[in-house]
């Protein structure tokens, strides 16, 4: 009994416990990575893309991530997407990754292309996996405007909502109109605003662009910018750059 209660065995046990804990810490839960490669087909899916939406569906729920930028090359019209990391996604079987790209508008016509992955089984000891998602442009026209920041934008404050209209010259009915996807608290400067899904005639055609800024609770626009834009597939005038006045 005296020997059993001497300090030495407990020192050993404590050391063993410590080693176990260290082993446990070292062999703790894994954090595998899945590398997503966004490919494109020949439909110029990214032309006009200003908003990248990545939706990860797992049996434990959905995670949706948004990125805002110009995600295409204005000259080649190919996708230009940078690197993004989304950690802490839940492990499980049957995970799916869906990618869609939008222009700067919030209406459904602004969704330009989509693509999704095959289901994935991701365990904590899975090796790094590469997944390809090929984007295909939806049945939306290719006409695209890149609207630059107006010179007085920075002098305005408190803007909460922005609307737009694109009206072919000489006509009354806009070919596209609605709200811009504008979240001032996240991204106070929405420019360049990209409006796609616009009809793209073969010849150069003029369109009038209106952009209106609103403050909360005020139905009257505090500022309306306007400008003309020229689009023409045959003249290679797409996308067209627009400077607002």
């Amino acid at each position: 009994m005296r020997r059993f209660y001497s300090a030495a065995p407990f020192k050993t046990l404590k050391l063993l416990s410590f080693m176990w804990l260290m082993t446990f810490a070292a062999c703790g839960p894994g954090h595998p990575e899945v590398w997503l490669s966004i490919e494109q087909d020949g439909t110029q899916p990214c032309l006009g893309a200003a908003h990248l939406e990545i939706e990860v569906s797992t049996p434990k729920g959905k995670s949706v991530f948004h990125e805002f930028n110009q995600f295409f090359d204005a000259n080649t019209h190919s996708c230009a997407i940078g690197q993004f990391r989304y950690p802490d996604l839940p492990l499980g079987n049957g995970a799916e990754i869906a990618v869609s790209v939008w222009d700067s508008t919030s209406d459904s016509a602004g969704q330009l292309a989509t693509g999704s992955s095959l289901p994935l089984n991701i365990k904590d000891d899975s090796p790094t996996t590469q997944v390809d998602v090929t984007l295909s442009r939806l049945q939306v026209p290719l006409g695209t405007l890149i609207i630059q920041k107006p010179s007085d934008w920075d002098s305005l404050g408190g803007i909460s909502t922005m609307m737009y209209r694109v009206i072919p010259a000489g006509e009354q009915i806009p070919v596209r109109s609605g709200y811009l996807a504008y979240a001032p608290e996240v991204r106070p400067d929405p420019f360049p605003v990209i409006i796609s899904s616009l009809p793209l005639p073969q010849e150069l055609s003029e369109m009038t662009v209106y952009v209106e800024a609103f403050r909360d609770g005020d139905p009257t626009a505090i500022r309306t910018w306007t400008s003309s834009a020229w689009l023409g597939a045959g003249t290679n005038q797409n996308p067209a750059y627009v400077s607002l006045n």
């Binding site: 490669s37 966004i38 230009a80 997407i81 690197q83 989304y86 996604l89 839940p90 990754i97």
Partner: peptide
């Protein structure tokens, strides 16, 4: 539980 990270690779 363990988690995984989605890394969107740059494509340009």
């Amino acid at each position: 539980e363990g988690s995984w990270t989605l890394v969107v690779q740059p494509n340009h």
